[in-house]
Every structure is written in structure tokens, then in C-alpha cells.
């Protein structure tokens, strides 16, 4: 593993060139260019806000800020995985001819999306301070930590997915379906507090459901993004039968540590898996 990482470091200039190429190519033929990376989340969040406030009856001040705080990391997760699933296969002709550490291909896709994510976060802060007028919390200093562990998680998954997709092209379809389902298993359109107070659950089960739900590292990371970026909030939902109120829960640091640990583990395992198979890529007919 260390040898592979050292070789990767030797090829860092190639990795960086690939990242720049991805960024350049993505919006090369569009007039609005990078703004598409902002328009997509902003339009999505606007629609979600209208639906959840007006139709579903969520009473939350600045709901859109809370959605955006989780939706941007979700976009990063989703687009990075989808982009990287094709990354090796798209360059298979090059892979068959030239020696270079194969992991630069999926990693470049991840890093290009990381840059988009960071730029989107800057816009988020402008929105937060300018439009919403919310004060910046001191816990914002933890943001780079979350981004770091999320990137490790994404990189680990990307290595597995891009490798499998060379041998089985079904992988990209499975990933795409998996992501669509996963969207409902992470707190973007709802709040983790609502999971805690899940309907049907007797009080002694609540804690367990909350725990199991957050063992999914991406779900925990997104709960964490919300909690470090925005002040705690009391969620009110006006349902057909009764009005429900969900008090804010404090950040569960233990669960966050588990999520970070799982992210590191997935990266290590993903890289080991990729390394085991990466010299078979060129043999694919």
C-alpha cells in the first residue's frame, strides 16, 4: 500500500492535470459554464423548500438553508460516484498502452468534484450570511474535517466502483439506482430528529433506530454538516391528524467518530481492492 501511494505521489502532476482537464471539459460547450454546478442545487432546493413548506407543512424558519447544508454534500457524494464509475473504462485505450498508476483516473474524478463542492460551499456561505443573515457558528472550523473524511469515503467507494465497472458494466446502473434509494436514507429532505421520533417506534426503540440509521457514514456526515453549519432548530410538522414538534438533538460525537473511522476503513479496503485488480484492466478485450 505504501509503495502504491509513493508511486501515486510520483505521478501527482498527472493527477492534477487530469483534475484540471475534467473541470475544463465538463462545461466546455455550455454558455453558463461553472454556474450549472450552482444552478442545479439551487433550483432543487427551491423546489424542495416549496414542496415541504407549503405541501407537507414543515414549519421551520430558513428551511432552505438546512436543506442546502445537506444537499451540497449529497451532490458531491452522488456526482463523484457517478463520474468515477466510468472513469477507468472511458480511458481504457490509454490504460492498454501507457503505464501510470491507474488510481489517478477515479481519484481525478473525485478531486474535480471536491473542487466543485468547495466552490458551492463558498456560495452557500454567501447565501447564509447575506440572505438568511444567520451568524456563523464557531463549530464551522470543523467543516474541513468533515470534508476530509467525506472525501476519503467517496474515494474508497470510487476505487471499488470504477474497478468493478471495468469488468461488469452493470456496476454503473446498480450505483445509479443505489444512489437514488440512498437519497431517502440520508437526512436531506427531512431531519435526523424526525428519524429519532419515527412513527410506529416505541420510545425504547427510538435510540436504536437513530443509531442504526447513523451507522451509515454518509448519513452521519450529513447530519454533522447541518449541526456544525447551522444553529439547532425545532422542527414542527403540521400533519393531517396532529401537529408534531421535534426538539433538536445534540451532535453525537461518538457516532461521528464511528463514521470517520468507517470512512478511513472504506478508503483502505477500496484502495487495496483496486490495487489487486488494476493490472488486469489492460487485459479486458
Amino acid at each position: 500500500m505504501w509503495n502504491e501511494l509513493r508511486e501515486l505521489y510520483r505521478y501527482r502532476e498527472l493527477l492534477w492535470t487530469l483534475v484540471l482537464r475534467e473541470l475544463r471539459v465538463r462545461y466546455k460547450n455550455s454558455y453558463l459554464g461553472f454556474f450549472w454546478s450552482l444552478i442545479v442545487p439551487l433550483v432543487t432546493v427551491a423546489v424542495l423548500t416549496i414542496v415541504f413548506k407549503r405541501v407537507m407543512g414543515m414549519v421551520i424558519p430558513n428551511y432552505s438553508a438546512y436543506v442546502l447544508a445537506a444537499f451540497l454534500p449529497w451532490m458531491y457524494f452522488q456526482t463523484a460516484l457517478l463520474d468515477s464509475s466510468q472513469s477507468v473504462l472511458a480511458q481504457i485505450q490509454l490504460v492498454k498502452k501507457v503505464y501510470f498508476p491507474r488510481e489517478v483516473l477515479p481519484l481525478a474524478a473525485v478531486l474535480a468534484n471536491l473542487i466543485h463542492f468547495v466552490l458551492a460551499l463558498l456560495v452557500f456561505f454567501v447565501y447564509l450570511l447575506g440572505y438568511v443573515g444567520a451568524p456563523l457558528l464557531p463549530s464551522v472550523v470543523l467543516l474541513p474535517v468533515l470534508v476530509f473524511f467525506q472525501t476519503l469515503l467517496i474515494a474508497g467507494l470510487s476505487l471499488i466502483i470504477s474497478c468493478l465497472n471495468v469488468f461488469y458494466e452493470d456496476t454503473k446502473y446498480i450505483v445509479s439506482i443505489g444512489l437514488q434509494l440512498m437519497f431517502y436514507l440520508v437526512p436531506v429532505i427531512y431531519f435526523s430528529e424526525q428519524v429519532y421520533h419515527a412513527q410506529l417506534a416505541s420510545p425504547e426503540w427510538q435510540r436504536w433506530i437513530y443509531l442504526v440509521y447513523h451507522l451509515n457514514p454518509i448519513a452521519m456526515l450529513m447530519t454533522a454538516y447541518r449541526k456544525i453549519l447551522l444553529p439547532p432548530i425545532t422542527v414542527q410538522q403540521i400533519g393531517a391528524v396532529q401537529k408534531q414538534t421535534f426538539a433538536s438533538l445534540p451532535m453525537d460525537w461518538g457516532l461521528l467518530a464511528v463514521a470517520c473511522g468507517v470512512s478511513v476503513l472504506i478508503f483502505v479496503l477500496g484502495y487495496a481492492f483496486f490495487n489487486k485488480r488494476k493490472w488486469d484492466f489492460a487485459e479486458q478485450p
Partner: peptide
Amino acid sequence: VAPLLQLGVGFHPDLTGLENVYFNGII
């Protein structure tokens, strides 16, 4: 070792010749 690549391998059609020269050279 430098392999001579077959026609178009390692070139991105949307990028300029210059940008492709950099990518090809680095790879």
C-alpha cells in the same frame, strides 16, 4: 519507455491541441 499511441488515443476532442499536448506529455 515511450509507447507511440494509436490515432487519437489520449486526446480529448473538446480540448485544444495545446491542452492535449500537455496532457499527452504528462501522461
